[in-house]
Amino acid sequence: MAVTAIGAYEFAPKDSVDKFPAPLLYVCWEDHKMFCSPFAVPFPPTLKFGDMCKGAFPGIFGAHPDFAKVDWDQTQWFKSGRPWRPDMDKTLAENGLGHKDVIRFRTPGLTGLSGSAF
């Protein structure tokens, strides 16, 4: 049994995709921990990956002085910690992203405030 209980204990998970306005995506900008944690954002699966980076990310990451220097063509991506190459022109769904996937990006040369990873 997957829980120690006095009787049957089975419930639907609290955070299944049907309960959200859109699948939840977790996003982190490596070496920029000024944003204290990765973000959780419900993005429509029809959103183009490039539009997420260039349209949505400025509102999320724009407060960091490094953000203006980001070159999206040079960015390295990771999905669940493994290197991964998204297609900027395809949608999130076409890129294989689903509910509660976690992606991270590294921007070579940009390592935070005074190189502190913040």
């Binding site: 049994m1 997957a2 829980v3 209980a5 419930f11 959200f20 306005p21």
Partner: peptide, 19 residues
Amino acid sequence: HEPEKYIQSWLPVHQIYQG
């Protein structure tokens, strides 16, 4: 060890997005 218990976590961020 006890997944059935923790899949019930009331995570504030998720609850906000669920309205």
